[in-house]
Amino acid sequence: MILADRKSGVIVAGATGRQGLFHIGLMNDYAREVGGTGVVAGVTPGKGGQEAAGVPVYNSIREALREHDAQASVIFVPASAAGDSIMESAANGLELAVAITEHIPVHDTMKAINYARLYGTTVIGPNCPGLISPGEAKLGIMPAHLARPGPVGVVSRSGTLTYEIVDELSRAGIGQSTVVGIGGDPVIGSTFTDILARFERDPTTKAVVLVGEVGGALEQEGAASTSLPLVAYIAGVSAPPDKRMGHAGAIVEGGEGDARSKIRALEGMGIAVASRPSEIPDLVRPYL
């Protein structure tokens, strides 16, 4: 298991919006189920003193940390302020900031990520579903009932496609150590390379499923960086060039980042690449 466990205390930024309220509830349902810490406080500037889904709300992370012990934030604040929220998390010494928010301008994201690096804060996302360590902790919006504890790490640029693959694995009796959605934006705080390095240091993780898509070259870079057994799936074989496929980062630009060349590159490294999600469990099983 990587990034978070049942001892991790979480602050939700953007706690009083619809999304924030709803997911504080779900995260704390999960924390109660597994005996974890869960969300200890919410933050919304100007709403200090209120309550959100059963947790106290503060005006700032700084105020929240005076009353609570927390190591991570989960960020639901609107796109125009989300970069600021990542920087606030870092400046207050949180180890981990998980940015769920979509549509953050990429210049804001670059600034926030590089600022967070100065403080040693790990950023997951933006435009991501967060992470779950089955039986330990859930930070974000992944549906918890699909995941089972086990030896396979999952790292993905996607949301629902990750749930699909986790569901396939769980149905096949293959549990997960941690499932991480790194986000669908072109610039993200933690790449495949970063997450794979953590899985490599994690004694419970025996193999990793890498779920990529069109755009960029992070899949090949990640695969080349690790000695862990990998199984990959790349979405977007049928995606036309120069069209953004839902995610800001899912675009074949200047003839680069198409799915077939990624698949060729991965297969060239000896990695099994599934041609559809349902093939993944059988490809992973030999490594367990």
């Binding site: 996607s158 629902t160 839902g246």
Partner: peptide, 15 residues
């Protein structure tokens, strides 16, 4: 729902 799942559906259609 979701960009990845929708892309994967497209790919399966081609498959």
């Amino acid at each position: 729902n979701g960009a990845g799942l929708t892309m994967a559906t497209l790919d399966l259609i081609e498959h």
